[in-house]
């Protein structure tokens, strides 16, 4: 089927994502924040689907929404919510945070304004053939970006070993 009402769905999911993201940092109850983050991640997966990237969307749901967020919730469930609700919220790094946010926003605006130069038209290859999406991701990862992929896997291995070393009392 050809896509139907694409702009409508894009703005819908983008709005859900933004509202979810704002709720994550404004809610006092950490369980609410976690749920808002799950909603934002799901909306992001929907946008991936609209970009003809079904594999990335599936992995996003399985890993982030269904895996990592469960672990987040797992930790939050053991925290005493009543106490943390009464505590005054503070953030001593708001100056640095504002500077970083402004810089990132400026970068986004700059990229958006110069999009034609940074991403020339011939560089954007949208393959509407969704069937080849998984194979395409795999051949990119194991071909063109092999080095970066292996470095990432090495980093993850180090993180795993670190987690085991920290969790075990006696090696």
């Amino acid at each position: 089927m050809t896509p139907v009402a694409t702009p409508f769905f894009f703005y819908l999911f983008a709005a859900i994502m933004l509202i979810g993201g704002i709720l994550v940092i404004t809610r006092k109850n950490p369980v609410h924040s976690a749920l808002a983050l799950i909603v934002a991640l799901l909306a992001q997966a929907s946008i991936y689907l609209m970009l003809y990237a079904p594999f990335v969307a599936g992995v996003q749901i399985i890993l982030y929404a269904g895996g990592i967020m469960v672990l987040f919730l797992f930790v939050i469930m053991l925290v005493s919510i009543e106490r943390s609700m009464k505590e005054r919220q503070f953030n001593s790094q708001w100056v640095a945070g504002t500077v970083a946010a402004v810089a990132l926003g400026g970068l986004f605006i700059a990229v958006y304004a110069k999009a034609e130069k940074i991403f020339p038209h011939h560089a954007i290859r949208i393959t509407p053939d969704e069937l080849l999406n998984t194979q395409g991701v795999a051949s990119m990862l194991y071909g063109q970006y092999m080095f970066a992929f292996e470095i990432a896997s090495l980093l993850l291995l180090v993180a795993i070993i670190g987690a085991v070393v920290m969790a075990k009392k006696r090696i």
Binding site: F55, G58, I61, I62, V70
Partner: peptide, 13 residues
């Protein structure tokens, strides 16, 4: 076309 991933994702939710 990602039927299986979709099932795994929904069950993980």
């Amino acid at each position: 076309n990602i039927g299986l991933l979709m099932i795994l994702g929904v069950t993980s939710m």
